[in-house]
Computed example of a mutant assay.
Amino acid sequence: MPKAILKLYLILKRERFDIVQYSTTNAVFYAATASWLACIPVRLYAQWGIRYVVFSGLVKIIFKQIERWCCRCSTVIEPDSMGNLEFSIREGLYPRDKGRVIWNGSACGINIERFDISQKDIWRTEYREKIGCDVHHLVVGFVGSIRADKGCNELIAACRSFFSNMPMARLLLIGDKVFYSTIDKDLRDWVESSDQVIHVPPNDQIPQYMACMDVFALPSYREGFGMVIIEAEAMGVSVVASNVPGPADAIRHEVTGLMVPVRDAVALAEALQVLLRDPAKRTAYGVAAAAFARDSFEQKKFLQYVLADKEQLIAEEEFQINHAGKHV
């Protein structure tokens, strides 16, 4: 038994918690196993993404079995999107009565006070100046780790394919380059040499930078939910995202943005051009996006649902204990 599992088991056995919640691949494996061994009454797996979908061959088989084991050890599973709930059920990871989504999904909801659309015009002017853009530039934005499984190969290839015909277009990449080597070398070379690509390191001014964008793109291969989509929508930015579980729940196709097939740079380029060449459509999508984010994912309301969910889980467990006691 790995030392981490043993240590967790001893802590959980001693403290006798009513609920243990866990998420992310490594932590889930250790915590789910230790909680199961310690007989914790409510073992809550916050399924914020499914890792094995980006793998192939033997690695995919192994990671799928790990996912299946973690689900089996858990008493309740709460993916952060309906798409991942339905995917998990189809994959046989757990039965329908074991999984549920809180409210409309997401892991934490959107902080409307931070992503304050009333400040958009002010931030747009200030931060466009910071990145060397003016009112005439058309900015495609991305926020996240710049890596292959976030769809960055497709995004960069898509932009490269038409930017030469759109000299005022800019690609704004905000994020770390820890896995930058997973980007094709010819695309990295273009990013480094093109004056149409802007890179900004990770920072805490994401709402301000999103205000600069005309279109936000997340062509990811997998996401638990795709919270950055909701953040962009909260700032009134039209979006383009891949049609995979998670992001598909964070967008309303042809209402707040456009969905495209995953790993399809050609379709992505077409969708980006549709929005960049049609300011009226971008504006309409942006207005609908801001309302969608506010009405469906506002953080304070989301947290009320989270609290109610925890109270329900505890009440259900207490009922089972009391009911079992009457039949002893």
Rank of each mutant, 00 (worst) to 15 (best):
I5K: 11
Y9N: 09
I11T: 12
I19V: 13
T25S: 14
T33H: 07
W36M: 11
L37A: 08
A38Y: 02
V42I: 12
V42W: 06
R43M: 06
Y45M: 10
Q47Y: 12
V54P: 00
F55Y: 13
S56R: 11
I62F: 09
I62S: 04
K64E: 10
K64Y: 03
D80P: 03
N84E: 05
G92D: 02
P95R: 03
R96E: 13
G99L: 03
V101C: 04
N104L: 07
G105C: 06
C108F: 09
I112D: 14
E113P: 00
F115I: 06
D116L: 02
K130D: 05
C133N: 07
C133I: 09
D134P: 06
V135H: 13
G141H: 05
F142P: 00
G144N: 01
L155K: 04
A157M: 09
A157Q: 11
A158K: 00
C159Q: 09
N165G: 14
P167C: 00
T182G: 01
T182R: 02
D184G: 07
D186Y: 06
L187Q: 07
V191H: 01
E192A: 14
D195V: 14
V197P: 07
V200N: 09
P202E: 09
P202S: 11
D204W: 07
D204E: 15
Q208K: 15
A211D: 11
A211H: 10
P219E: 02
G224C: 03
E231A: 01
E233V: 04
A234T: 02
A234Y: 06
M235D: 06
M235G: 02
V240C: 03
V240A: 00
V244D: 01
G257H: 03
M259T: 14
A265I: 01
A267P: 01
L268K: 02
L272P: 03
V274K: 13
L275I: 07
L276M: 01
R277E: 09
P279M: 03
A280D: 06
T283R: 14
A284T: 08
A284D: 08
Y285K: 02
V287S: 12
V287A: 14
A291E: 12
A291N: 12
F292C: 06
D295C: 07
S296H: 13
L307A: 10
A308S: 14
E311R: 10
E317D: 13
I321T: 12
I321Q: 15
G325V: 08
H327W: 11
